[in-house]
Amino acid sequence: MPPTTAPAAALLALYDREVRRGARPEGPDDVVERVGRVVRRTAPAHGWNGVVWSGFTSADEADTAIADQIAHYTSRGLSFEWKLYAHDAPADLGRRLVAAGFTPGPDETLMVTEIDEAALTAAVPDGVRLVPVTDPAGADQVAEVHERAFGDDASGLRRLLLDALTATPDTVVAVVALAGDVPVSAARMELTPGTSFAGLWGGGTVPEWRGRGVYRSLIAHRARIAAARGYRHLHVDASPRSRPILRRLGFTELTVTTPYVYEPARAR
């Protein structure tokens, strides 16, 4: 990645402060704790468990905190993720996580845009309609798209989405794109009250519909909703496939993020 510009550095600092250090629970069974120089989220097994921020001042402090988080989650029988950003300290934190038994996943790029500057006029392709997801049938369609687009089991995603739609409907927006009655793309947006950022997640399109503008229309659709609710920025962890599209829509690359996953059964 090119060196971070001054405006991008300021935006990254705002993101760290509001989204990471200021993380908030995302559901009734979601607990956010600030323990020393770590912010962690503990949720049910089908939810997202992990470290969202750390601010260590020494390598020894990092090693102690890593051991503490492993003890916290494994005592509950939970796998968890340490979401590492390229600017996190110490510089060898990733190596220390691997040494402690974590497995790194594919890198993604944190991209952010001010909604006023985003390209919000992407049209929905002919033959496609965007439908809000509000019930189990819609959650089934989101899960179907996810499994076809990414090849992953989406049962946990379906349950997590239903939990949010039931308990905290004001914090999640989900939408599915239908070609006729067939789901061909889907995405969601997470809204955190008290912050200026809305998060775009899970955007996926089935292979035969890629390259037709469906993904862009889902971004624009969610951006308009976020703007109407008073959010100023959109953020997304972009894959190599989505990064060029987001760049054309006005998103800026801020840093690289890597998921380090700890599986208790595998680490013993």
Rank of each mutant, 00 (worst) to 15 (best):
R241A: 15
H221A: 05
L246G: 03
G180P: 15
R241T: 11
E253M: 12
R232S: 15
A226K: 00
V176I: 14
R243T: 11
D181K: 04
I225S: 04
T205E: 07
L234E: 03
R210T: 08
R243A: 14
S239I: 11
H221F: 12
R241E: 14
V175P: 08
A186Q: 05
R188D: 15
H233W: 14
A227K: 15
P183K: 02
T192N: 07
G202E: 13
V206Y: 01
A220I: 08
P244T: 01
A226C: 03
A223I: 02
R216V: 01
H235A: 04
A226L: 04
Y231V: 11
R188K: 11
A177P: 12
R243Y: 05
A177Q: 00
H233S: 12
V176P: 14
S196A: 14
G204Q: 06
M189E: 09
E190M: 07
P244G: 00
A223H: 06
H221N: 11
I225Y: 08
A226Q: 02
H235W: 06
G213Q: 08
R222K: 05
A177R: 03
S239D: 15
V176K: 11
E253N: 12
G202R: 10
P244K: 01
A226R: 01
L234K: 02
D181I: 08
V206A: 02
L234W: 04
R241V: 14
W201P: 02
D181L: 12
G180N: 14
L191T: 03
R210I: 05
P193L: 06
S242A: 15
R210F: 09
G230Y: 00
V206R: 01
E253H: 06
I219E: 02
R229E: 11
R247T: 15
E208K: 00
V176Q: 07
S196Q: 14
V175L: 08
R248H: 12
P183N: 09
R188P: 08
L218D: 07
G203N: 12
A220K: 01
R232W: 07
G211N: 01
T205Q: 02
L234N: 02
P193Q: 10
R188F: 10
W209S: 00
V184G: 09
R247M: 09
H233N: 13
A186S: 15
A179Q: 14
E190I: 10
A228D: 12
R229F: 03
F251I: 06
V175I: 13
G203K: 00
F251T: 02
A187R: 01
S185G: 15
